[in-house]
């Protein structure tokens, strides 16, 4: 009888304590996106998320792509998925290569670079777990031939949108910083350069297709006095035949942005 009373009292105490405790709540929302990436092909990936539980903190390359769906190998980089990141070293654009080593993770590959004077030097990539990648920046994923056709990017959904990645003159690897597929003509592009109406002078977006080819789209601003057919294209991304581009980029997929020059 005494024992039953003790147990009842203990349960009542726990119930009271639980009732008195403030619930733990948070605004953190974890994001997980599927990105199409065909086996044996190369795709541009961008991560629309920030580091978990650390809003505005830099995300490290090693943490960006989920291991789910990726192909690793114990010793052969050519049979494993690879990450390729473009870096600007004193104005010189180069690639850092990483491969997914079994039980190790993303491992840097030392590469050799030939200079204009014929000399060579080796490039050692920054460790993937120390390589910060800003939201909206892109990098390449080269799939192993034995891989599937999708990979997953993960992180925490950012509370601050939109993202404004710095785009410099020349080639940039970028992406749209939200966790949703986006039509390039539904985005507000402030500062995009439409040139003089000839797309040779315009900013360009290049999207990787599933067959590994690049599709080119150009930003168009119609000069005054041009026929009405061109005025309808004003402020839009267009195809090479000067028709409106209807292109939806999946969440997590990036693209090349070729910046001609500032407006």
């Amino acid at each position: 009888m005494k024992k039953i009373l003790t147990v009842t009292l203990a349960l009542a105490a726990v119930g009271w304590a639980q009732g008195a405790m403030a619930p733990i709540t948070g605004s953190n929302e974890v994001g997980f996106s599927t990105v199409p990436a065909t086996a044996g092909a190369t795709q541009i990936i961008t991560v629309p998320y920030v580091a978990c539980l650390s809003e505005n903190a830099e995300v490290m390359l090693a943490d960006l792509v989920s291991t789910n769906g990726l192909v690793s190998h114990a010793s052969d980089p050519s049979n494993a998925d690879q990450l390729i990141v473009m870096v600007d070293i004193s104005g010189d654009l180069r690639y850092y290569y990483y491969w997914l080593q079994s039980d190790v993770g993303w491992t840097g590959v030392e590469t050799s670079v030939m200079h204009p004077d014929g000399t060579t030097s080796s490039v050692t990539p920054t460790a993937a777990n120390a390589f910060a990648v800003a939201r909206g920046k892109g990098f390449w994923l080269k799939r192993a031939a034995t891989g599937g056709n999708a990979v997953y990017v993960k992180g925490e959904v950012s509370g601050t949108t939109p993202v404004t990645p710095a785009i410099t003159t020349g080639l940039n690897l970028v992406g749209y910083g939200t966790a949703a597929a986006v039509n390039i003509n539904d985005v507000t592009w402030s500062g995009a350069n439409g040139g003089n109406g000839n797309t040779k002078t315009s900013d360009a977006i290049m999207v990787v297709e599933s067959d590994g080819s690049l599709s080119h789209y150009y930003y168009f601003t119609a000069p005054d006095g041009w026929p009405a057919a061109y005025q309808e294209l004003n402020g839009k991304w267009i195809k090479e035949d000067y028709s409106v581009a209807n292109v939806t980029v999946p969440a997590g997929q990036g693209f090349w942005y070729l910046r001609r020059s500032a407006n």
């Binding site: 109406g197 000839n198 150009y218 000069p223 041009w226 061109y230 090479e240 035949d241």
Partner: peptide, 11 residues
């Protein structure tokens, strides 16, 4: 067509 614009042929 439209690719042959008043500013020439686009890229």
């Amino acid at each position: 067509g439209l690719a042959v614009s008043p500013a020439g042929i686009g890229r």
